[in-house]
């Protein structure tokens, strides 16, 4: 009978089979023991890994949904939404509120349920409900991811001093020295500046920025979700209302928002009190600034 080339596959000897089995068992046990030694660091690394991935997911959600009001770097927008990347927020906010849970829980709670209204609030925008449980767009794990991302600012926020902390104090300002620079510091509201304020500051402090995007054009591809985008307003403003040039159109839109509403947008959203909040001079400078095609971004 001819002997095939693969005859090495035929293990005939019982002794060899026994030896192979014993070696295999020893190798398998050794490998499992090695895995056992590796288990503790492996689990630690995996825990850190999935926390990190949570923060990554939270960062993406924050960039797409939260950064327009709370700022891309979490430093808030005066009058629109409070700073999160703030030493005050990490050290004192919970005590001022009397909240007994962790800061991450507080953020998750606020993100999930939002704020019921913004009456008597110094913030122009109301925090919406974000959790699907309360009618928002996000699942529970996404809300947690955002909270983890926000809390991850801690290391940076704790290095802030009173000058660099972007926190916008509430009316019932805290009176605790959290900056360690001596003395009890009352966080007073930012003093009202005298004289005309510059238009780039007005655009933020008057909360225009919350709804209008200055860097995107309003066209077929791009459409501001709440208010129209403004990058190409200097081209389109003059065409909007017959008989009104660009200057007049924008001026009227600020002073009397109800006068014209761009089609497909909800009327009555834009605040109607800008004429009282700004001087005529300031409004004019804001109009010029918005319509300046060479405005630096």
């Amino acid at each position: 009978m001819k002997r095939p080339w693969y005859r090495f596959l035929y293990v005939r000897s019982s002794l060899v089979k026994l030896l192979l089995s014993i070696i295999a068992i020893m190798v398998a046990v050794a490998v499992v023991l090695f895995q056992g030694i590796a288990e503790e660091p492996r689990m630690l690394a995996q825990t850190a890994n999935w926390d990190g991935r949570s923060i990554q997911n939270g960062a993406a959600i924050y960039a797409n949904n939260c950064s327009s009001c709370h700022g891309p770097d979490g430093r808030g927008l005066p009058g629109v939404a409070p700073a999160l990347n703030s030493r005050y927020f990490f050290t004192q906010r919970l005590a001022d509120l009397g909240f007994t849970g962790s800061l991450e829980d507080y953020v998750a709670l606020t993100v999930a349920a939002g704020r019921p209204n913004n009456r008597n609030s110094q913030w122009a925008q109301m925090m919406p409900t974000w959790s699907a449980e309360y009618g928002g767009p996000f699942r529970g794990d996404q809300v947690r991811d955002v909270a983890k991302f926000v809390v991850n600012w801690e290391e940076e926020a704790l290095t802030q001093t009173q000058e660099t902390d972007p926190w916008q104090p509430f009316e019932n300002a805290p009176t605790v020295d959290i900056y360690g620079d001596g003395g009890v510091v009352a966080m007073e509201p930012t003093p009202v500046a005298t004289g005309p304020r510059p238009p780039q500051e007005l655009f933020v402090s008057m909360t225009c920025v919350a709804c209008h995007n200055l860097n995107l054009p309003q066209d077929a591809q791009n459409r501001g979700p709440v208010g129209p985008n403004m990058a190409n307003l200097h081209e389109t403003a003059a065409t909007r209302v017959p008989g009104e040039d660009a200057q007049t159109y924008v001026h009227n839109s600020i002073v009397n928002p109800g006068a014209y509403t761009v089609e497909s947008y909800t009327p009555g959203i834009m605040p109607a009190d800008f004429a009282q909040k700004m001087s005529e001079e300031e409004i004019q400078s804001l109009v010029d600034w918005i319509l300046d095609p060479n405005r630096p971004q």
């Binding site: 026994l18 089995s21 295999a24 068992i25 190798v27 490998v31």
Partner: peptide, 12 residues
């Protein structure tokens, strides 16, 4: 013995 040896080696 043959089957057991094969399965043990395969498991390892």
């Amino acid at each position: 013995l043959d089957e057991a040896a094969l399965l043990i080696v395969f498991t390892a």
